[in-house]
Design a protein around this nucleic acid. Structure first.
Lengths: 182, 182
DNA sequence: AAAAATTTACCGATCGTTCGGTAAAATTAC
DNA sequence: GTAATTTTACCGAACGATCGGTAAATTTTT
């Protein structure tokens, strides 16, 4: 295989996060992935829609393996939190990468992926709420704080794009860490 | 004129906010605006790009007239705050309408509009920071709180789209009001 | 009747998609 | 073990449909 599946996923993800679903054309994919249109169709007979679905599903798996499972795991709560923040940083490449959940929440792709996006977000919020509970918050407050975490991340990633300044994202993670761990 | 300029703006705005820049096609515009392609070109010789620029500029003017000017005006601070929150609700149609600043912060439209978007956001943040100062905050804290207001609005509007639930937006405005005015 | 606004009819380019086919790797048959 | 076969991975060329865009004709307004 000229393009191994790991590289392929990485490149597909980057294109969709940069251009959005509608903004991503097969020509752009060709160029950035390094496979001709026909070859992309060999790997994804369902075309662009299947590629986007694949990328979104893989994002879901990644969050499960790197964030959700950590929250429910058996590390000390402080280590869990550090890991979650680290993985959040990694997930958005320090703010350089947009959130696929936001990018797919528009136009045609909203109808296509809303159910999946909603499920994935809810799953992550619930997991982080579990972690907040370990820090002593009651169930309601934990869920509220976890939701606010997600909201803030999303809002700050919007600001990163709009204002072209990754510190909106990076500063928050640092601030949050010190607030929780001192 | 079959479509007066006020209606035209309203419809153009709705289309771009719903489908994004790349997702908005001339056929969609035709359908939703109620003018044939050639008629749209009669009004906007620059085509789709000019329509989007027009809509974004009008959004900027609207924010100036309805939010920024209120912040710098001479009403009592409590009335200013109420008006700002009201206009924020109106701006996003209670959460039903996406934020054009977010929608245009993707792909091709990011490069096209980033400078304008950045300017408009900065202008609004600065104005609301001024209002916070009237509530007794010092300059730095006021700017921080105003920025956090913008971040939260953006984040919550993302959540509204992703989770299909406008209460993420509406509840915050209410909560914020009671927090500031008791 | 003149001017402005809208429409029909069309254009080349690009869209997502499919077809026909090649080279090489993997599998099966002998 | 090697020859025959099937499968995998890829690509150039073309598909019909739609893209953004334009010129000329028609309708509406004044």
């Amino acid at each position: 295989m000229l393009v191994d599946s790991e590289t392929l996923l990485k490149r597909l993800k980057k294109v969709f996060r940069t251009y959005g679903y509608e903004g991503t054309t097969l020509s752009i994919l060709e160029e950035h992935v390094g496979l001709k249109k026909a070859s992309l169709y060999h790997r994804f007979p369902g075309g662009k829609k299947e590629m986007a679905t694949y990328v979104l599903d893989e994002v879901g798996k990644w969050v499960d393996e790197n964030v959700v499972s950590v929250c429910y795991g058996d590390l000390p709560k402080e280590q869990k939190l550090l890991k979650v923040l680290d993985k959040t940083y990694e997930m958005y490449e320090g703010g350089d990468a947009a959130c696929l959940w936001r990018v797919f929440s528009l136009g045609e792709s909203l109808e296509m992926f809303q159910t999946t996006v909603e499920k994935q977000i809810r799953c992550m919020i619930k997991a982080i709420a579990h972690l907040f509970e370990e820090f002593g918050e009651n169930k309601d407050i934990a869920l509220r704080k976890s939701t606010e975490f997600m909201i803030t991340i999303q809002g700050r990633l919007v600001m990163v794009s709009a204002m072209n300044d990754v510190s909106y994202f990076r500063d928050y993670l640092e601030e949050f860490k010190h607030e929780m761990l001192g």
